[in-house]
Amino acid sequence: MFKELLSQRLSALFVGGWLLLNFPLLALWDVDATWGGVPVFPAALFILWVVLIAAIAWLIERPVTRTKDE
């Protein structure tokens, strides 16, 4: 379902990731605080990275034709 929109979704994710990992928005995390002992800025970068990879995996691996096998 919606397979034809995959390229568009990936392009949107690319633009979103580009904005989130560049400076006007990245400055949101540039604060003098820690989350459980970890400085916020590196923690936010790593979390954004994981979220980006998870989003790619979700978009690419979503069962489209797999419903037949299940």
Binding site: L10, S11, G17, P42, L52, I60
Partner: peptide, 21 residues
């Protein structure tokens, strides 16, 4: 320089978003 070693890995990840296309 702390966390600034990261962008060299974030960039390719971002590029791989368009890998399929």
């Amino acid at each position: 320089g702390g966390v600034w070693f990261l962008p060299i890995y974030l960039g390719p990840t971002l590029a791989m978003v368009l890998g399929w296309v």
